[in-house]
Design a binder for these strands. Sequence first.
DNA 1: ACCGTGATGTTCT
DNA 2: GAACATCACGGTG
Length: 198
Amino acid sequence: MKLGRDFFMQDTKKVAKQLLGKKLWHITQEGITAGIIVETEAYLGERDGAAHTHRGKSERTRVAYEDSGRAYIYLIYGMYCCFNITSGERDVPEMVLLRALEPCEGTEVMMLRRNTDRVVNLCSGPGKLCKALQITRDMYGHDLCESETFFITDDGFRPKGIAVSRRIGIDYAKEAREYPLRFFIKDNKYVSKVLKTK
DNA sequence: ACCGTGATGTTCT
DNA sequence: GAACATCACGGTG
């Protein structure tokens, strides 16, 4: 049911693909929120010009060098959080960015946090899903394999088709901008809008 | 529908 | 001081 260390220690691209269809949970005082993961991106460490760990270890990236299955959360553009899960071998600083969820549990709470009543817009982007599930920077380093409040489960859902594209928002990253490392569930309406295949 | 812009604070040079 | 793995909003067509 709950994903353990072995899952996240697999090859990062495999983790990114296999996370599609899994369910991310966050249990807080406000209530239980959860969603099916429908869009991910792989970031491949020092060999990947778009990865934060491309230039090695820093205060911000230190958790990427610990064991896998932990939360790498950072502030982007001064106002949004992005949530990654560390993956691959220990000391190999790779991770998977969660870009979109299909809301399942606690959509009322999500709508309050996001200030919208359109379910399709609740978690269709990396900043949006963090706001909807209240994923904040004080959860940096959180171990999703050991947690009772913030974790991922396999509920048996298997996507019918998986699509692949270049990653979003990394045009600055030379040749890495073209790497096919974004994965999403085909024809799923909760995927973030941009670069959706027609 | 697409496009341009402004909001905002941390990290890195 | 620049850059940034974003989002909402207001303009145009």
